[in-house]
Each structure stands twice: as structure tokens, then as C-alpha cells.
Design a binder for these strands. Structure first.
Lengths: 251, 251
DNA sequence: GTCTATATAGCGATAGAC
DNA sequence: GTCTATCGCTATATAGAC
């Protein structure tokens, strides 16, 4: 079931040469990690804009040129962070035992673990959403440049939905809807200044309760009609092909 | 009904001194307009990032420092554009005769006129969404810095919903939902490369059809329960006070 | 391949003269 | 209110050490 994810991560990551066992590559990977970690720590402390590449290089103990050798730009560091978070999210859910859990519990696990991972990185998320309105930008969180990461994040949700064995159309609708919900939750999360972002957690609980409630209602004729309408609309809007791709990978 | 809007525009705009009749102020206002128009034209042609303040100053026929005298930053120009668009949207809908129209027709007028205004500015919208993940930034489209513009855009929707004389809770829910829909539509609009963004227009049609259909369903007991749940959740999430404020203004 | 050191161009933004 | 001059920054380039 997870084969596609491994394929994808192998295809997208340009620095898996560390597995070759060559000590030079290991050294190189360490330097890269050092630069990335230094950057993220500075980003968390002072924010993305206030941190300069020179700061990062100094903290990592390398020259400015070295930092640019590993990361073509400050944005590229954000991209690496983006991928790192998604790898972590995928890995955590892969480890979890979901066997006895309900759909709602599985989805709660998906949403909560995402929030856990991002707990201290709320300042960083702004950098990820920064180019969401610029389709051509490689870091646009809805654009082609982040397609792989986006599909991975949809896959995590699809894996939590699949065991429910829903009709295909409803499964598509639910997965896409939940993915959109997750994006909305993350935005709320950034703006949530309650202690430990407890409001966001409650929002997740409530949203999932309503989702599962509406899911039960979706079998009734009237809402079944609405459901077909929504699906036809999303299909016409071209928002489903990517999802189909993710669903095919499960078979 | 529109009193509040006039109050707001008077309070938020810091450059209405042109009405004082002083020739110096008129001259000043002309320079400001010249800089703003030059900037927007360059933004539309080459995008936000590719346009420099030096380009803007040259095109407007002033020195770099003069441009910064009128606009504290490049972002401030975007802010001015943002407010200008909302003023235009509010003004257009104020002129329209909505008397004989259905809710769906009124909402279509709201959504379509917004798209008409932004037709040639899709490259510019990316600059508006740029800081949506940074609450503290004055240009954050969800943050306190843009509260006034945001309330104006909600007011436009509320004005289209009000004649329907819905129960108060449903009206709140519908207005907030439609505002969120509008934001989503704008994102889709940015990514829509179909001719004249016809896909976005069809998306609006379909979304409004489903919205009005669900609205009719909302009176049934089962969906009425879901509706209460959703409203309670949004209230707990703190997403309603601002809306209440807008609704009070109509009385 | 990995990295240092250094230099240049052009950017946003600011200070102070006029 | 407008200008010139300047700052610190990013991005980029280059020459060379290892």
C-alpha cells in the first residue's frame, strides 16, 4: 500500500546518495543537515525574513558560498523543511496501529500528529504559505512545484479513509474535502494564540465530528443528490485527477 | 444601511486631505495617484517581484525617495490596491438594482463583479495572499491589519443575504461560508488558465447552485442539527464576533 | 566534489540635504 | 515634498584550496 510513497520520495529527493555508503557523501549530508538545522532554528527564533543567509552560514560554521552550494536560495531551505515535515508525518502514521480504530479516530490521528510535528514551527508555516497565490513559483503550496509533497499529504488522508470501504465517489469527495480541511486547520493553527493551540485541537475535534455525521447523512437520497452535484462540480473544476492518481496507487 | 461603510472608509483612509481644497494637497494627491498607477501597471505587466521601486519611480517620473515618501514600502502599494479594489466592489454593488433578484442571482452578482474587477490583476493577487500565513504582517489578508477591508468584503455578501430574511444563525453561517467560498474562488481564479477564466465562472455557478440547494435542505431536522453543530464550532473557534459586528451595522 | 574567500550588481529601505 | 547618497541585504560569480 505504501509502495508509491517510497517511489515518490526516491524520485523527489535529490540527495539520497548518502545511502551509497561513500564517506564523502556522508560528510556532505552532515554539512547539509547542519546548515538546514541552523536555518530552521534561526527561522524559529527570529522568523524567516529576519534571518539572513549570512546568519545561517555563520551559525552552521560554514562560508556563505557553502550555504548556497547546498541550497540554491533561502526558499530552497523552506522547500527542504516542507518535504522533511511531510516525510515525518508519513513515517509517524506508518508506525501507528490503526486496526481497531474508527474512521474518526484514524482521522484524528492524522490531524493531531500533523499539529504535533508543527507545534513549534508556526512562524515557519508563513513561509510555506507565502507563495500560495503564485502558481509559477516552485514553492507555491498549490502549484506543480510541490505536487509530490502534496500528493504525499493526500495519501496520508486517503490511507485513513480507505479502510472505511466507501463508494468510490464518496471516498474521493471525502479525501479532497479533508485535505482542504487540513489546509484550513493549518491556517487557523498559525493564527491561534491560545495556550498550546488548544483551540485548534478543539476545532479539529468538532470538524471531524461534523464530517463523520454528514458522512452518515450522505447515504440519504437528498444529500446523495447534493453529493453528486458537488462531485460533478469538482470534476469540472479539474480538482479530481490528482486524487485519482493517489487512489490508483492503493490498489 | 451603508452608513457604516462610509464611516469605515473615512477612518481607514489616511489620504483624504485632497477634499480640503488646498492646491498643494491636490498636487500631492496627483503625485500619489501617478505613483500608484505606474506601480499597478508594472505589476500587471511583469508581476510583483520583477517590478522594482526604481522602475516604479522612473515610470512615475519621480525620484526613488519620492516614491517612498508616498508609500512606506512596496507592500504599502499592494495595501492601497487592496483597498481600492474593495471600494470599487462595494461601489458597483451599491449601484446595482437587486430588487427583483433571487438570492442566487444576487450572490452571482457579488461574485461575478469581483471577478470582473480583478480580471486583469491575477498576477497581483499573489501579492495580496503572500502574507496570509503571517498574522503579524500588516498585509496579512486574515490579520488585524486588513480588518477593515475584510469587514467591507463581508458586508457586501451580508447585504446580498439579508433580503432573504433567514433565521439569524443561518444568516451568520451562510455569510461566513460565502466569504470563505469567495476566498477559495479567488485562489482558484489565480490558478485558472482557461480562456477568460471561464472555469472559475462555471465554478461560481455550480457552487452557488449547491449552496442554495443546501440552504433549502437546512430546514430539515437532520441538517438543522448539523447546522447547529457547525455554528457552535465556528463560535467556539472565535470566527463569529467579527460577523456579528457586521450584522449589527445593518440594523 | 566540497568548500573558502572575495567581489559585484541590483534590490528595498533610510537619512539628511535642499 | 523631493532629491541624492548610502546602507545592508540577496543573489550570483569567480578563483582557487583540498
Amino acid at each position: 500500500m505504501f509502495k508509491i510513497l517510497l517511489d515518490i520520495s526516491g524520485a523527489c529527493d535529490n540527495n539520497l546518495n548518502m545511502f551509497k555508503g561513500n564517506s564523502k557523501h556522508i560528510k556532505s549530508e552532515q554539512t547539509r543537515e547542519e546548515i538546514l538545522d541552523s536555518a530552521l532554528e534561526l527561522f524559529r527564533q527570529h522568523g524567516f525574513d529576519a534571518t539572513t543567509m549570512r546568519d545561517i552560514a555563520v551559525k552552521a560554521g560554514v562560508a556563505l558560498g557553502a550555504a548556497y552550494y547546498y541550497f540554491a536560495s533561502k526558499d530552497a531551505i523552506v522547500q527542504a523543511y516542507y518535504e522533511k515535515v511531510q516525510q515525518e508525518h508519513t513515517a509517524r502514521l506508518r508506525q501507528m496501529k490503526m486496526d481497531g480504530l474508527s474512521l474518526r479516530q484514524r482521522l484524528a490521528a492524522v490531524f493531531y500528529s500533523k499539529l504535533d510535528i508543527l507545534e513549534n514551527d508556526r512562524k515557519l508555516l508563513g513561509a510555506i504559505f507565502r507563495y500560495s497565490g503564485e502558481p509559477a513559483h516552485p514553492l507555491s503550496c498549490l502549484g506543480p512545484g510541490t505536487r509530490v509533497v502534496r500528493e504525499q499529504s493526500m495519501q496520508v488522508i486517503a490511507d485513513a479513509v480507505t479502510p472505511e470501504a466507501l463508494p468510490a465517489d464518496l471516498q474521493q469527495l471525502l479525501t479532497l474535502g479533508l485535505w482542504a480541511l487540513q489546509m484550513g486547520v493549518l491556517i487557523y493553527f498559525i493564527y491561534d494564540d491560545s495556550p498550546q493551540q488548544q483551540r485548534t485541537r478543539r476545532l479539529v475535534d468538532g470538524a471531524l465530528e461534523i464530517t463523520t455525521f454528514l458522512l452518515r447523512l450522505a447515504r440519504f437520497p437528498l444529500l446523495g443528490f447534493a453529493r453528486k452535484k458537488v462531485l460533478a462540480l469538482l470534476d469540472e473544476a479539474g480538482l479530481l485527477p490528482q486524487l485519482n492518481h493517489a487512489l490508483e496507487a492503493q490498489s
